[in-house]
Design a protein around this nucleic acid. Sequence first.
DNA 1: TCCTTAAGAGTACAAGGTACGCCTACGGCC
DNA 2: GGCCGTAGGCGTACCTTGTACTCTTAAGGA
Lengths: 203, 203
Amino acid sequence: MPRPRSLTDDQLVAAALAVVDRDGLPALTMRAVARELGVATMGLYRYVSDRQALEVLVVDHVFRSVDLDLPEGTWQDRIRVLLDRIRVAVARHPGVVPLVLRHRQAAPSSLRLIETTLSVLTEGGLSGVERVIAQRTLIGHLLGFLQSEHFAALSGPGTIVLSELPEDEYPLLARTARDARSVPPDEEFRRGLDVVLRGLTAG
Amino acid sequence: MPRPRSLTDDQLVAAALAVVDRDGLPALTMRAVARELGVATMGLYRYVSDRQALEVLVVDHVFRSVDLDLPEGTWQDRIRVLLDRIRVAVARHPGVVPLVLRHRQAAPSSLRLIETTLSVLTEGGLSGVERVIAQRTLIGHLLGFLQSEHFAALSGPGTIVLSELPEDEYPLLARTARDARSVPPDEEFRRGLDVVLRGLTAG
DNA sequence: TCCTTAAGAGTACAAGGTACGCCTACGGCC
DNA sequence: GGCCGTAGGCGTACCTTGTACTCTTAAGGA
């Protein structure tokens, strides 16, 4: 056994998250991460094969931070808890949303999340293609929410612009955008998820 | 009035789409689009302020191609038709999915889509925050689907990998991934949307 | 003590976005 | 019919970013 590695994956991830949290996703460059670690730029390549691999490490870390130990309750409640934990875990580092969207399938720990979701759905009596659809619909809902929240939050500038549109041309839009500005992200997520769960239950 | 412009927005968009359809999204560079048009690279900057503006033009064009004239029927059916048309419009140029996700709010013609969706929801008796949630849930569902379809299609390589996982470690995942491989995208979309619509109706 | 492998540092290059400048060619107006 | 203002056409140049390559040094175990 020769010289041991001097950087752990966790250190790499911590540096990347520090950069993103401080300066935003566009600032996440190999040079910036290396500087954050006090290492030469090319030194990173001894730990990751390329920039994408670094991004996957970050996403994997976020997923791994989700506690999979669910409380007792109906399967609907358990789904609610699980998905909300994922939402909160991602929200801790808002800048990584695009990375999560892109790399979720490449992050090994996403398997644990999917397996857990499936086990709760199975509890709920779902199986076969029905279970596939339920799983994908829930995941899709979560991804869509993260997407919307990141690029077009209800309480964000986009909605404000909408609410100021001419009422004669976009009557419903202007009015609805005003209604929307008072809805905080967690309420939007909870109520939207309720819609999906109701649909799954009614099926 | 001096010399008229020699390129229209539609020509710009057509060139960009040609590049993306032929060589994929990463090939969408200012140089490539300029070459496609037989124009010097810097010539593009007389028509768009920067690369993002070009991307927004593309997204806007895709949205504008959606026919908003909906057939008679229940409001649920009308929503189904509308969202499916958007899905199909995007699917005609699979490479632009990430652009749609990023720029949907910046594309002026997205306003028409939202206004139309809202009018159908209003028909269905929804208003106020309930209508906000319904609208966001439907859009979120669509975005989530596009996202999943693009980066992790049920019939794609990711699912195949999942289906080959060790059953003792991921019993449900492996089994479900095998169930999933037979579900085509349009069926996945339709059945997922049915779940959401059922939830909205039951609410 | 030596060998194996990682570390550290620097150089170099290609790709891509975009600022800038020069000269040309239209088309309406005097 | 000549003039002027604006858009066109084209090329150059610079910065940022990812990444390949090389050379020398250091740290543990055999």
